[in-house]
Structures are given as C-alpha cells and as structure tokens.
Design a protein around this nucleic acid. Structure first.
Length: 953
DNA sequence: AAATAGACGTA
DNA sequence: CGTACGTCTATTTA
C-alpha cells in the first residue's frame, strides 16, 4: 500500500483550513447511527464523535498550519430581509443534533481550536472572510464545506473540500474541477446558482433551467448582466421562462453572494491550534463516555497536528492515518495435497477453535422463537474461516482451490484432489460447520458441490452480515465490502474483477495464493467487525435461522433450475418476431419514414414535431415521454388524425410484441444446453427491503398480466421424472401484515370474514351492503388498498383510476375513517423511522433512512414513502423466506422427490414428481400458511398443471 | 468501452 | 406526484 501524501510539504505555502461547522456537524450526525452513540443519561453524542473523527481525518490528510471553524448563529441575516422565504422550507435541525452543537464547541475549545460565530451573518460569510484574510496573508486556504455556495470562493489559492457520498472521499474543488463540473469559472458560479435556484434553501430558479442551460447562457453572454441584457434574444420555452423570472434571479444573485469583509475581531494569528487543555478534554470525554480509543485517536492528531511549521511536518505527521490503516496480516500458508498433511494440520490447529457448543449447534428449528437472542460476540474469534475459488455460476460451477484458516495459519487445497483427502474434507466439514465463517454461503455451496462436497449451516456469513447491517449498501465483491466496512484500501490491481469469482482457469500464478490468503484475512476481519454489530442489534437469529438456511434452499433451487420447452419457446420467438415486424411495417407506412421505433428521440420528433401532437408528460430530463400510457393518451386524442392515429396504434402493437420477443429471446439465450434448464441466480443481498431478486436471467418478471405475455409461462414445464408444476401464492400478504401490525379491528375482521376481500372492504368504506357494491367501487377500493403500502398520493390514485383528484381525496378520507388504525400505523412508521433513523420488520430486519433528514423535499418525500413501505414489504419477504425453509424441510422429511424451483416474492413454484401432487400441495400450503401466526389467517392459493401457465389459479 | 436514459416486465 | 427489482436498446461520453 502506498502513502498518498502530497499536500503542502513540497510547497512553500502554508495552509489555512476553514471548516463549515454546521455542515460538518450535520454530516457527522447523519452518518453515525444515533442509538449507538448516546450516554447513559440519554445525551446523543454521535455528531460530536463524528465531528471529532472527521475533522481529525482531514487534518491528518491536509496538515494545515492554521485552523478556524465557522458556525451559523441563531436569528436572521440580511438575506432574510431580501428574500423572506429564505431557507423557509428547511426543517429545524433535529433536537438531538442541536443539543450536540454546544458540546462540539466545548470540544473545539478544549482542543485549542478557534471557532467563530457572527450574528447577522452566516457561517459561509465567516468562511469567505477567513479565506480572504488567508489569501491576503499568502496562505493556501482549504474550505471544508458541503455547501455549494462556497464554490464561488475557489481560486488558485482557495480550494473547497466537498464531501462526496462517503465523507472520506473529499473532492478537492479547484478552479479546474469547478469548470469541469459546471462549465463555468468559480467567479461565475453564483450566476449559475442564481439561475438554477437552490431547492434546499427554498430559492426558486428559472423553471426548466438546470446547470446545463445556465452554463450555456453564461458562456454565451459572459455573465448574468449579459444574460439580462440579451434576455429577449433567447428563444423557446426556456427563454420565456427566463424573462418571466429574471427579477427573482437577480435577487438570488444578491442573496448568494458571500460577504468577504466582515469584521470578525480575530486575526490569523489566533487560528493556530494544538495547545490542548488536557483537563477540559478529559472531563468532556468522560462526560460523553467516549472510550480510550477515541481519545487516543483525537489526541494523536491534535497533539502533533497544527501550530507547527511546514518544516516540522516530515517527522511529526502520523503515518497517513486518514483511513484507519488496518494491517492485513496474511496467514502462513501451507499448500497440501495428501490426507496425512491435512489431518496433521487440523490436529495442530484444532485447539485454537473454541466456539461455544450452544452457538455452534444453534439450529432455531422453532421459528416462533424468533426473539431468542443468540449472541455470537467473541465466538467469531475462535473459528475456522473457509473459502473456495472458482466459478460459482449455477449449472456450470467449477472449483479450483479451497482454503481453511485457523487464525494465523491456513491450508490450501487444489482441485481435483486425491480420494482420501476428499473424504477427510467431507468429514471435517460435516463435523465443524457450526464453527466455520464464510463469505457467501450460497456461492460457496456451488463451489463445494463442484467438488462433491457439502457444508451444513456455518456459524457466520460475512456477506449476509454486511447485508443485514446495511441493506442499502451493495458491495460487488469481497474487496468492496472490506473497503466499506473495514475502511481500508485494498490494492485491487492484481485481483480478478469479480472478487472471489475467477473465470481464468490458468490462474495458478504465485500471486493467486497471496490473493486468496488475503481474501481469508479479509473475511476474518469482516467477521470481527460485523459480528458485534449483529449482536448489538439482536439480528443473529435472522442470520442463523433465516438467511443462512434460505441460502441453502436457494442454492438447491439454482442448482436444479427450471426445465424449458425449448421447441415451443423458439416457436413463440418466431411468432412474436413476425408480429413485431408487421407492426413496424405498418408504423413506417403511416410515418412515411423508416424511423427506429425503439428510439425515444426519433419518436419524439415524429410525434411532436412531424405530426404536431400535443405532448402530455415530460421525463425527468425534460424531454417528452413516449411511454405506453402517454401513447395510449395520444392514441385516444388523435382519432381525427388518421395518419397519426394509425401510427400510434401500430407503435403500441410494436412495443408490446417486441418486448415479448426480447423476453423470449433472453430466455432462449439462458437455457443451459446440457440439461435444457434455466438456472437463474437468486440475489440474496441486493434488495434493500429483504426481498430476493433474480438475475441471469430474471425469472421474477416473466409476463403475467395479459394473455399474450402469459403464454410465455407455458414454456416452463416439469423435467424428466416429474409430472407437473405446482404454483402456490399468498393472497394479499402485505395487507394482512398491515392488518396484523396496525391491530385495526375492522381490517382484521375483513380478513377473518373469509369473503371476497376487496368487495367486503368496499362495502365497509361505502357503508353499503356487499351485494350493492359495483365493479367500479370494488376496483377503486382495491387500488386504494394496494396503494397504501406504497405511500400512494391522491394525485397518483386519481391518475391511476382516471378519476378526479377530489374523488380520490374523498375515497382516501372515507377509507381512513373506516380503518383509522391503519392510518395511524402508517404514520407511526414514518415517525419512528425519523426518530430512530431506521425501520424494522416483524423479525428485526433493519433499513436505515438518512434521507429522511434531507433538506431536499423531493428526496425527503421519497424517503418517507420508502420508509413506509420497507417494514411491510420486508416483513412479507421475511415470512416468505421462513415459509421456504419450512417447505423445503417438510419436503425433505417427507422423503419426496418434488422440489421448489422458483420464488416470485409471494409465489413458490414446485416441480412435482409422479404421485406426489396431493401430498406436496398439502405440505407446501401448510408451510406457507403457518410460517408465522398473525392476527389474521395467511391465505394461500394453489394450482397445479402441466406447465407454469396451466398451474395458475 | 462504459455510463446514462428511457422504457417496461414482475410482485 | 407509488415501493422493490433487472434487462434491453439507444445514445452520450470517455
């Protein structure tokens, strides 16, 4: 690993670091989970801790000579007088953050760091003034701020450090970086911002104008004045929009200009730092209940940090501590090939393995016991780590090597290996599985299976643990996971792109072993970091009783795959291709040109320019949408224009048939010729709610909504030795979960009644007898019910049902009058997510929602809908996972050959062996119905048939 | 060659 | 101005 310290050591200039205190405090607050950081008296400390470590990190990296921190101060500024709505939509900072600001300031005082507040001005103005002072005194100034207004300060002597997605990747915004990003100079940036507006600060810009257009105009006319002077020359909608809003823009420009010459009452001499008040710091850290490690970390930086001259820096600087450097001690490696070597190695290291029997044997057979909290804690330190390398794609897996590690030593076995060693390995795995740590149990099972080996439930899976800890973070490989969770930098150059996947059969270079040893040590480190997190959140049950067992079920489903009637599939492809071609010909005739029907751009031209049709909706990038619902709309409204109408009809037919052709072709390409089966891969660590997803190919989006598409399901058939497919699905699971979790008596009664659910609900909502409910009423209520769990707006509901917004509004009101507790429950989901920072499913699966605190309304609203949906969709996913484990076990214990082959969120597809239909239907239905006991019954409907389409019910 | 946008299939 | 996904194609960008 290389030291990447460039900085100012080579330059003669000294550096001034100016920090936007509020910006950093916000960042720290939302980056650290509050509940992991509070004192016994309940004082939140996450922002203080984050502030201290983030600041220390930046100081370590940048080595400034002077340091000043600017804070906003309560009360308005001159900006509020210019723009009354300034920052009007910004929500007050959370109470838990506000109480930490004085603590942060105390910390800075104790560390000898100067902080500055100036009534009547914002922190940004203080920063601008300090930067200007530094500039005059010949310093290079770094401005640490997450506020883009600071970009106007950038010049050759001022660089803004702007945090990216992760705080640690600070972008150094110098003049060139600003030009690259915005196409204008830093000095022009405020002009651009004035045109665009700032939603976070409630400053409207010119509607329809974003960074791109603003930059174009600025470059054309030089400045805002130039644009204003030539506003009449700018054509189009955007020009019109500009003229209408020019006053607002000029006002914005006044407001976003930073004041650079405040009388702060401090001089640069006051900005030295490093004279620590050890006593005050000690008292503060005790009060905050920070551990010794934090103190050492902070002291290390601030003791050696500032106040020194550039000449001192060579020796005083801690070795690039910006990323808590973690020493990946590679284990000693022994390559072995005989059973004697293996036995000797195992015997030598067995005494290092000391996982408690209770934990090692934990099986969680009784799923109702899900609040049994098993703690792994220290156990992960006395374990084997096991990994294998090769190709883990289902249906074509292939293993090259396997390694076992016991702390400091590892054995590496190449495949194929001798029979006696194989047998010893199998014995080892079956005896030791409960003491083994892996990364990706499912993938490992594919690799092991390629060597005719098996592994019963391991103790811990770092891939699954990472997913439970942060379901929104997606690491594509072991290395990314390490970089994220361990905060280390792994040299990736020689690493195969796919992490543990390695398709290169020749990869037996000397490097390969070292990479594999590194993989092992990363897995061990990850376990050491993640196990305490899982423990602390009481999620080990989820991992051991749900995720790990379901991994095993998924492995079997992937391995077995689904048999395809390839002849019929090819026939369908040809038919759809012919239909699509015909539709295309027709469309071309109406259009009078051979345009590409799959190009939205060309379609826009033909529809909205050539035909002159009136566009309906816009896409998010501003162009006019040509999606199906828009085309449908245009089709209806263009009845008097024969040519356009004909074109639209043909286009719609082409869209549909061509899509089906694509789907069918992708299935053809995915069939494994060896067994004429499709082996999909179920991703278990991708969907943030806890659902599975399916790739290569995606078998969870095979058409089902209209007859033509549904035909495709007919090519999924039972394979040789099987006679039918069984499909079982949950009816209205998510609604049932809502009934249970909300405790709403009316909704619970609706489910217990056993009647046509939507009709029954409609009769309650409209206060009419069930017999009098019309089809429209039923379908409206049905849409309302389903929309609930998504946070559907009345506007959206109106749009979907093609009714007036007021009607939708009144439907919603009546609905919530009838099911009051459902309403309260949904609100409570968002409220608790806001205060805790995360949501939780019935089984403790968490999802964090930092965006709930966003100052951006769009982002915040989206987060609220996601937070509303996550526990509901996630609980349904949990229930299905448990059902799969139970069903799989029931089938195994009944000793039948029938097997689960697909899962489509609320549906299981089972390949049924001759004579087992009734028994298997009963077993699967029972497993699904009783996966969990709710206040309402779980209703499962089953169908059986000669193919997947015929199994529908 | 890789990334983005737009469209659309599922629960 | 509805959540969660994956895949295809066209188009832009490096």
């Amino acid at each position: 690993m290389t030291d990447t310290v460039t900085l100012n050591s080579g330059s003669s200039k000294h550096t001034l670091l100016v920090v936007d205190g509020h910006s950093l405090a916000f960042r720290a607050f939302f980056a650290m989970p509050v509940d992991n950081f509070s004192t016994s008296t309940g004082q939140a400390t996450n922002a203080v801790w984050g502030f201290a470590t983030m600041l220390a990190q930046v100081i370590d990296t940048e080595q400034p000579d002077l340091l000043g921190v600017a804070f906003d101060v309560k009360g308005g500024t001159f900006r509020n007088e210019l723009l009354p709505q300034y920052k009007g939509t910004r929500e007050a900072a959370p109470e838990e953050l506000l109480t930490q600001l004085p603590l942060i300031q105390r910390l800075l005082t104790a560390l000898g760091v100067t902080y500055i507040e100036k009534p009547g001005y914002e922190g940004d103005d203080v920063i601008a003034t300090l930067a200007t002072m530094g500039d005059h005194a010949g310093y290079h100034t770094l401005v640490l701020s997450g506020d883009r207004d600071a970009f106007q300060l950038v010049d050759d002597n001022v660089t803004v450090l702007y945090p990216g997605h992760h705080f640690k990747d600070l972008k150094h915004m110098d003049p060139q970086a600003i030009i690259d990003k915005y196409k204008v100079t830093p000095a022009q940036y405020p002009d651009l911002a004035a045109l665009r507006g700032e939603t976070a600060d409630n400053i409207p810009g010119v509607p329809g104008v974003g960074d791109g257009f603003a930059a174009k105009w600025i470059n054309q006319y030089g400045s805002l004045e130039g644009i204003a002077a030539h506003a009449d020359e700018i054509g189009g909608k955007k020009g019109e929009s500009l003229r209408a809003n020019i006053d607002q823009v000029m006002l914005n420009r006044k407001v976003n200009a930073l004041v650079r010459d405040i009388d702060l009452g401090v001089s640069l001499n006051d900005l030295t730092f490093g004279s620590i008040d050890a006593g005050a710091l000690d008292t503060l850290f005790k009060e905050l209940e920070f551990g010794a490690r934090t103190k050492t970390r902070v002291l290390k930086t601030f003791n050696t940090g500032g106040g020194q001259t550039a000449a001192d820096q060579g020796k005083g600087r801690p070795d690039n501590q910006s990323q808590a450097e973690l020493d990946l001690n590679l284990p000693d490696n022994t390559a072995i090939s005989t059973v004697q070597q293996f036995d000797a190695w195992i015997d030598e290291h067995r005494h290092d393995i000391a996982v408690s029997e209770e934990v090692a044997a934990f099986k969680a057979k009784d799923f109702s016991d899900h609040d049994t909290h098993i703690i792994i804690g220290e156990n992960v330190h006395h374990t084997w780590t096991l990994a294998a390398w090769g190709d883990d794609r289902p249906g074509r897996s292939h293993v090259q090597a396997l390694a076992i590690e016991a702390g400091k030593h590892a054995v590496m076995i190449a495949f194929p290996c001798e029979a006696a060693l194989h047998e010893a390995l199998n014995a080892f795995l079956s005896q030791e599985h409960g003491r083994i740590i892996v990364h990706g149990y499912k993938e490992l099972l594919h690799l092991l299976a390629a060597a005719h080996l098996d592994l019963d439930l391991p103790l811990f899976d770092t891939k699954l643990a990472g997913y439970l800890a942060q379901p929104d973070f997606h690491a594509d490989g072991l290395i990314q996971a390490a970089e994220h969770f361990l905060d280390i930098q792994v040299d990736e150059e020689t690493q195969p792109a796919q992490g543990m996947l390695d398709f290169d059969a020749e990869s037996t270079q000397p490097d390969a072993d070292e990479q594999r040893l590194r993989d092992l040590s990363i897995i061990r480190e990850l376990a050491g970091t993640l196990a305490p997190v899982i423990d602390q959140r009481e999620q080990y049950w989820l991992m051991r009783a749900v995720e790990l067992p379901v991994s095993r079920v998924l492995f079997e489903m992937e391995r077995d795959g689904a048999k395809i009637d390839t002849v019929r599939l090819r026939g369908m492809r040809d038919q759809f291709a012919q239909d699509a071609r015909f539709a295309q010909e027709t469309a071309w005739q109406f259009a009078g040109s051979q345009l590409n029907l799959q190009s939205p751009k060309q379609l826009q031209k033909v529809l909205f320019e050539d035909f002159g049709l009136k566009p309906t909706k816009r896409t998010k990038s501003g162009s006019y949408t040509t999606n199906a619902s828009a085309l449908q709309d245009l089709y209806i409204r263009s009845v008097d224009n024969e040519q356009a109408n004909g074109f639209l009809g043909a286009l719609l037919r082409h869209r549909e048939t061509n899509k089906l052709k694509q789907i069918v072709q992708s299935l053809i390409d995915a069939v494994n010729p060896a067994d004429e089966r499709i082996h999909t891969t179920f991703e278990q660590t991708v969907a943030a709610t806890g659902r599975l997803s399916s790739v290569d190919p995606n078998l969870q989006n095979i058409p089902n909504r209209n007859a033509a598409g549904r035909e495709i399901r007919g090519v999924f058939v039972p394979g040789e030795g099987y006679e039918s497919l069984l499909s079982c699905d949950y009816s209205q699971v998510e609604l049932r979960i809502m009934a249970d979790l909300s405790g709403d008596e009316a909704l619970i009664e609706a489910f217990r009644s056993g009647m046509d659910f939507h009709k029954y609900v409609a009769s309650m909502v409209y206060k009419l007898p069930v017999e009098e409910i019309t089809g429209d009423q039923r379908s409206h209520v049905k849409a309302m019910s389903y929309g609930l769990a998504y946070g559907l707006s009345t506007y959206g509901l109106a749009q979907q049902l093609k009714i007036a917004p007021r009607e939708a509004e009144s439907l919603k009101n009546r609905y919530f009058e009838t099911f009051g507790k459902v309403h309260d429950y949904l609100e409570s989901l968002v409220t608790t997510a806001r205060s805790k920072g995360y949501t939780e499913t019935m089984f403790g699966r968490r999802r964090y929602f930092p965006a709930l605190q966003s100052t951006n309304r769009v982002a915040r609203d989206a987060a609220e809908r996601a937070a509303l949906n996550a526990p509901i969709q996630g609980s349904a996913a949990d229930i299905m996972k448990i059902a799969m484990i139970q069903a799989s076990r029931a089938l195994r214990e009944a000793d039948v050959r029938s097997r689960i082959i697909l899962q489509i969120h609320d549906e299981l597809v089972v390949e049924v062996a001759p004579g087992e239909a009734d028994q298997v239907t009963a077993l699967v239905r029972n497993a699904m119905e009783h996966a969990v006991e709710l206040a309402v019954p779980l209703d499962v409907s089953c169908g059986i048939g000669a193919d997947w389409q015929l199994a529908a019910h």
